[in-house]
Design a protein around this nucleic acid. Sequence first.
DNA 1: CGTCCGCTTGAATAGTGTCAAGGTGGGTGG
DNA 2: CCACCCACCTTGACACTATTCAAGCGGACG
Lengths: 250, 250
Amino acid sequence: MSSSSTRLRRAGALCTDATWLGRADCHHCAVRKDVLFGELEDLELNAILEPIDQYCHPPHSVLYHVDEESSHLFTIRAGLVKLVSHRADGTLRIVRLLGRGDVVGLEAMLGGRYEHTAVALARSDVCRIPAAALRRLDARSPALHRRLLETWRSHLTRADESITELSTGSVRDRVRNLLIFLQRATQDRTGALALLNREDLAAMIGVRVESVSRVIAEAKRNGILRPLGGERYQLDRQALRAWQGQTPSV
Amino acid sequence: MSSSSTRLRRAGALCTDATWLGRADCHHCAVRKDVLFGELEDLELNAILEPIDQYCHPPHSVLYHVDEESSHLFTIRAGLVKLVSHRADGTLRIVRLLGRGDVVGLEAMLGGRYEHTAVALARSDVCRIPAAALRRLDARSPALHRRLLETWRSHLTRADESITELSTGSVRDRVRNLLIFLQRATQDRTGALALLNREDLAAMIGVRVESVSRVIAEAKRNGILRPLGGERYQLDRQALRAWQGQTPSV
DNA sequence: CGTCCGCTTGAATAGTGTCAAGGTGGGTGG
DNA sequence: CCACCCACCTTGACACTATTCAAGCGGACG
């Protein structure tokens, strides 16, 4: 068998850069209540001296690289970002998927270097916040402070979930959990989920592309995944649970 | 194949309870600098109104159960504690190992319930800190605040490591990483590592007991692990790296 | 219209899980 | 003090699953 995970995707031809959308206007931000500054007073917000910039990241563009000096955090206004860990043998593993309202680059709060590479999977609008500004706010605003702790907790909970649900059991077990996970992470008002490409799916559960492909293809044949066009699918939760009997357990 | 992980160990005959060692005297604590209150002023420490108690946990005793109201955090003065996640199918997975200087039950800072069950693996001396006290200190002492953030980061880093190094690749790959990991986690001044029982090893890397056993036995035959008596072993790092060529990669 | 890239599928092989049987060491009770 | 017992570790044989390597397929795009 040997290793799982995925090799580095060749330097994509379409890896365009992020485009700057201008200074953020947090006071009038439409998603402010869903992200870090939700409960912050306007007064407190004004205490930020450093600029917060907005960017639009096309798919495959990089928010930051592993080992880069961590100077900024990012909040996701819309889109989807993967945190990729580079293993010693050159393979990759996706350790987290982050979406609207999530914070990327938390480690910048503590200085040092980024621990992963953050890559946009879908077009993503993000606000780039200087870590120094957040540190200052963190010290002054209990509301933000609590929000930050909750962000840490959220990352930790998801990491643990990734260990117990996405890295344990047979490929079919993992894909079953992955589909539920993706539905939560990418669903729109209709409840449809956006499937990632096979390489990313494989890197999320630590198996080979062909193995995921077989299982996903099976799910489609069984009507567990019904194509809605593009990469969007309707997930039949009931059929999903019944799929291949329970976990054989033991 | 089916699931990995390990079933619940029968209610151990020796699961004695923790014994109370009395109120902690943080001011004269020998390991204070290594744990949460390291850089705290004596004045700040005095601001704690609620009592901090010391306990000694024998092996297999439980610090707290999953879903229990999270009211306290624990700092480990000595010993080894596992964080166990209970999966829907009844199997268990160890998501983290914590030792001297580590904090257990971080989630209590945010209220709600514990997300894992914490079980002592070796005899462990811990201080039990009321979450309310820590929340108050967190708001007043920047030093403690930073220390807490670093604790969150440490947990997150280890969780990610668990995903990339202990849940990815062949069983031999994982055991190789696990041995390095255990050496860091349990080494004494001689550099020897303490091996866990096969069931716990299996639950750490998400495979079956027999699979770990085979690989560990192989490591012993190859001189990678040299028995020092009891559960202590000398790890030959060089032989470890050469073991079975590199990860076959791809 | 042809090429390229990602997805699927097939066949052979290696790796794990499964089930069952021994071995070993420490502890208990006779 | 010794024999037995029990829990845990190891090993074997076999079934099943995942990986590997290779080929085919179809859509997107120039």
